[in-house]
Computed example of a mutant assay.
Amino acid sequence: MNKIEQKHKQVIDFYIKNADKNVVKKLSRYFREGLDAYGCDRKKEEAQHNRWLKEWEEDMTTKDFLDFGDRLVATGKYEEAHCATYFILSGKNEFTPETFERIGKWLENGIQNWANTDALCMSVLSIFIFEKIVQPKDFSGWTSSPSKWKRRAIPVTFVEAIKKGHQADSYLKVIENLMEDPEEDVQKGIGTFLREVWKNDPEKAENFLLKWKEKCGRKIIHYATEKMSKTDRERFKRTKK
């Protein structure tokens, strides 16, 4: 058994020991497609994450944590995917474009719900944008991914950039390739992104929505316009045929 297998066993043993069906039942309400989870108290989990990282700091490199992350997300377990996100943050100072692509594969090879996706976007993938390791255009290849979670990751990551005051134009160019995506989970992410753009630049967001309102999914419109007045929202209804 190599060191990653040993550490994975530690992770599994911890979660089995601290599994709680009531926690799973409570969490499952937020996942319409179901949730594969152990059910662990979040505070207890976070404390254990910190202990693991301290214990492993001399033993695990960023590459090791990438390999470990591959293994963790492949199980499909909610908490193990959360571990992968938390652990890889310890190597953020060594992130490269290759790291970006490697982490992106987690969204095709195991991550299978909105919560794990969004946590990865907000805490990890956003770093690649903020530190200029990648550009918005580097997400373009993700728009054709067979995984709806990888496609959702694009607008959810971009939300963080807009919140930081980034100009929307380069992000909108990538989002255009997703505007006819049929998956509601992707549409919700896009709508949230456009709502954030609207807060900073209403004219730009509204012109973009007017361009797409006849073709894009309705969840995009719903989420993008929910902070507008009722009168303003009327402008983005589809034309009756």
Rank of each mutant, 00 (worst) to 15 (best):
M1C: 01
N2Q: 04
K3W: 06
K3P: 10
K7I: 12
K7G: 03
Q10D: 14
V11F: 07
Y15D: 00
Y15V: 00
A19E: 01
A19F: 00
D20T: 00
K21R: 10
K21S: 14
V23S: 04
V24S: 13
S28H: 05
R29Y: 04
R29G: 12
F31K: 12
L35K: 13
L35D: 00
D36W: 01
A37P: 01
G39C: 04
C40V: 06
K43F: 00
K44F: 01
E45W: 13
E45F: 06
W52L: 05
E55G: 01
W56T: 03
M60F: 08
M60Y: 03
T61H: 05
T61C: 02
T61D: 00
T62V: 05
T62S: 10
L66V: 08
D67K: 01
F68L: 14
R71W: 07
V73A: 09
K77M: 03
Y78M: 04
E80A: 05
E80M: 14
A81R: 02
A84G: 13
T85K: 03
S90Q: 07
F95Q: 07
F95K: 14
F95M: 08
P97A: 06
E98T: 13
E101F: 01
L107H: 13
I111S: 06
A115Y: 08
V124I: 15
I127F: 10
F130M: 10
F130K: 08
Q135M: 05
P136D: 05
P136C: 03
W142P: 12
T143S: 09
S144R: 15
K150P: 15
R151C: 00
R151W: 03
V159Y: 12
A161M: 08
K164T: 05
K164I: 08
G165T: 11
D169K: 15
Y171R: 13
E176Y: 04
E176L: 10
E176A: 15
N177Q: 13
M179W: 12
M179A: 12
D181N: 12
D185E: 14
Q187N: 12
G191D: 04
T192H: 08
L194V: 08
L194P: 13
R195H: 14
W198T: 07
K199F: 15
P202H: 06
A205L: 02
E206W: 06
L209Q: 04
L210K: 05
K213R: 15
E214I: 01
K219N: 13
K219M: 15
K219I: 13
H222Y: 11
Y223V: 04
S229W: 02
T231I: 10
R235W: 03
R238G: 14
T239N: 12
K240E: 14
K240F: 10
